[in-house]
Structure formats: structure tokens, C-alpha cells
Write a protein that binds this DNA or RNA. Structure first.
Lengths: 219, 219
DNA sequence: GTGTAAATATTACGCCGTAAACTTCACGTT
DNA sequence: AACGTGAAGTTTACGGCGTAATATTTACAC
């Protein structure tokens, strides 16, 4: 009897916030964002769903922690010499995170960044203020940068209107009446060749180029 | 007896896709995005939840139709003389829709635009191609515009890290250790004065200014 | 060993989306 | 006027959800 009992006790690594988060992210990426339920996550951990509540206050708390974990790379950004480069790195890293874990980003990508990772925000604002921007202007630039990056990443992980991956999306467009949709339907093939990396950089570069520098040009 | 029976039959306006959508949006704005369930929507319509299935195939279909309804103003955009102005109008209208119905936008704002409103997309692409852009470049410019606008709008309706509305958000920031967060905590008061309208325009103008025009400058 | 606190399991409740079967009603045909 | 028909709404039912409350097990200090 002792051998059968050990099934759900011994030889089972104990639950940890970290392990829960890793398994949760793996589960989401494997089965989709809607597959994350307390019970199914518990099952993936070899445990009953309620056991998770000893490590997280509830589903909301769990989602917040998942977001935190996912966005950790933003904590490791190094300061560069130019504020535009810092904005560029911030935006690019945010999108990379999304592309690497698209299902997870779909699930948690709308949470306010400030409730999840305040430090990277503070650092970027600090860079901008040091570069000579008024704090209020620095905040506006930060918002513009993160809005573009997150908006692009969300669109990418939920599926572009015209998806470079082609597949059913392209066929759906080509099935439209070409007289009503001369570009979307008539040029669908060309459109599908747009590289998502290139498009992201094009918009980001335009945004940063278009932003005016601080008034007192020197430090 | 005929009088009591009439309660759930006569004198009750019949269900319509249109009426369901209007009541759904009102319900969402009044009670929050998580309040939209088939049963509660039915109750708000004076009907059992299952009745809705005679007008929509299911929850997904309903959400799609809500998005369509919400984004209808994008259909009414007039063509302007300059492609930058068209992009500007598109982005601004998208954000206005979000600001006017923030809870609804939170619920449906991540759906791919092309599955909901293809016409405005086609028109904007058409404008850009007419202005001399290659279709592929037109698509990149469209993506950049909508990514920024939607990303900004989503951030706005889910709550900025630093919220101009002040309230608990500002207090939360001021409670941070000012040595660790010199800008976010130390300048929280100044930051809270950033007008969301102004910040949106600042980023949008920068983005459009930074985009290069079509190679052959003339038509 | 035994007591104690933490981790996990069990049970239960109300809400969710929706499939299926049933009832009611409006209306065109005869 | 009677009736068939199809659409609209209701009722019932099922499995899954988040989580509160309670019970059980485990690991460890003494």
C-alpha cells in the first residue's frame, strides 16, 4: 500500500512559484491560451488544481506573475549611448518576447506594464530625462514607443490581416471579389511577401526618427 | 390569463441582431467586459440566454459582431488629399472609438481587423498605392499606423502605468521608494499632467513624419 | 515518537457556454 | 376557419470553470 500511496507524494518535486510558472507557460504555448485553467495546470504539475492556491492568490495573481516572468528580458536591457537606441531596444525586446511565446503574450499582453515590471519603465524614463527631456515629454515618448511595439506584437500574435505565413489567410483574401478589393485580393500574393521583421523595424524607425530631440540639444 | 401570458410574448419587441448588439455594448460598458455572458445578456434583453443563439452562432460570433459594430465609424472615413492625412484619420478614429466605449474595446480590441472590417483596410491600402507606394510598402505603413493606434488605445483603456486620471494609480507610484524610482515616484505629479490626447498625437505625428514618401515623388 | 505548521486533496457552490428537446406563436395555404 | 410549417423563445442538462471551506497528508523540530 505504501508503494501506491507514494504516487502523489514522494519522488514528486515540490511545487514552486517558479516551476508553476514554467509549466504554465509551456502549457499555454502547447495547448493555447484558453487551455490555462487551474485544474489543467494542476494536472500538468501532477497535482490537484487547488494546490496552486498555496502559491498564488488566484487566477489574476497567476496571470500577473506569468506576465512578469515573460517580460523579464526587459530587466536585462543595457543602457546605450543614445535615447533613441534605448527606445529601440525596449521595443524590439518586447516584440521578441511576444514572438517567442505568442500564445502567452496573447493571454497576458494587455496587462499594464507598470503593474508587472516597473523597473524597465523607470530606467527608460530615466534615460530620457537624462537626455534632456522634460519628465512629461519623456513619458509621452515612452508611451509612443511601447504603444507601437505592443500594438505590433499583439497584431502579430493574433494574426495579421494579411499573414506572411500565407495559408488559409491568403486564400481567404484571394477569394474576395477583386473589383471590390483590388489591393487586398488582387495583390494578395505580393502582400504576403512582407517580412514581419522588416515591417516592424520600418515603423519603429519612422517613429523614433520622427520624434523631436530635447530642446537643449546638448546634455 | 391572457394578460399574464403576454408578459413574455406580446408587447415585447422582438430580438434583432441590431438590438442584441446595442444592449450587449451597453451592458459591457455598464458592468464591465467580464459581465457579458449569454445568460446575463439574455436577462438584459428580457429573454432567456439561449434565445440569442437564434441570432448568433455562439459567443465568438457575437464578439465578432460587437467588434464590427464598434468599429463602424472606420467605414465612414472620407478620402483626403494626402496619404498621411488618411493614416492620421484612420488612427485617430480607431482611438476615438476606443475612448468612447473603453470596456467594449478592451473586450474585442485584439481581434484582427481584417476579420471584422475589411473595407477600411482596403481603402487605406488603395490610397497608399495610389500615392505611389508599392503594395508591400503600403501594407507595412498600414501595419505601422494601426499598430500604434491600437496599441495606444489598448493601453489607454486598460490603464496607463501613470494615469492622468490620478486616483489610486498616482498614489501607488508616489508610495514607491523615490531613490529606486526617481522619475516615476519623484516626478509622479508632473507625469500625471500629461494629456492623453496630446501624447497620442505626439506619437502619431512622429510616426507619420518619420515615414518616407513614395520614391517617385510625383503621382 | 509526537506535535505543529505547511502543502496537498476533497468536496461543494454558483456561474459559464452550449447541445438538445420542447413549447409557443405568426402566418400562408387551402 | 382550420391547419401545417417554420421561426423564436424556453427548459433542461452536461461538463468545465474559479474558488471557498474543510479534511488529510507530509516534513520536520523537539
Amino acid at each position: 500500500m505504501s508503494s501506491s500511496r507514494s504516487d502523489h507524494t514522494a519522488n514528486r518535486r515540490p511545487l514552486t512559484r517558479e516551476r508553476i510558472l514554467d509549466v504554465a507557460i509551456a502549457l499555454i504555448e502547447h495547448d493555447g491560451p484558453e487551455a490555462l485553467s487551474m485544474r489543467r495546470l494542476g494536472a500538468a504539475l501532477g497535482v490537484e488544481g487547488m494546490a496552486i492556491y498555496h502559491h498564488f492568490a488566484g487566477r489574476e495573481d497567476l496571470l500577473g506573475a506569468i506576465a512578469e516572468r515573460l517580460l523579464e528580458p526587459l530587466d536585462d536591457l543595457e543602457q546605450r549611448s543614445d535615447w533613441r537606441e534605448d527606445c529601440h531596444d525596449f521595443a524590439t525586446t518586447l516584440r521578441e518576447v511576444a514572438v517567442q511565446r505568442p500564445a502567452t503574450f496573447r493571454l497576458v499582453g494587455m496587462q499594464p506594464l507598470g503593474e508587472v515590471l516597473l523597473l524597465p519603465v523607470e530606467r527608460l524614463l530615466g534615460t530620457l530625462v537624462e537626455a534632456g527631456f522634460e519628465p512629461v515629454t519623456a513619458l509621452a515618448i515612452y508611451r509612443a514607443t511601447i504603444s507601437y511595439a505592443r500594438g505590433y506584437a499583439l497584431a502579430e500574435v493574433t494574426g495579421f490581416t494579411v499573414d506572411a505565413a500565407g495559408g488559409s489567410g491568403l486564400e481567404r483574401l484571394q477569394a474576395l471579389r477583386p473589383d471590390a478589393f483590388p489591393v487586398l485580393a488582387g495583390r494578395a500574393g505580393e502582400l504576403a511577401e512582407l517580412d514581419p521583421d522588416r515591417a516592424f523595424r520600418l515603423g519603429l524607425d519612422a517613429l523614433l526618427r520622427g520624434l523631436e530631440g530635447p530642446e537643449g540639444a546638448a546634455r
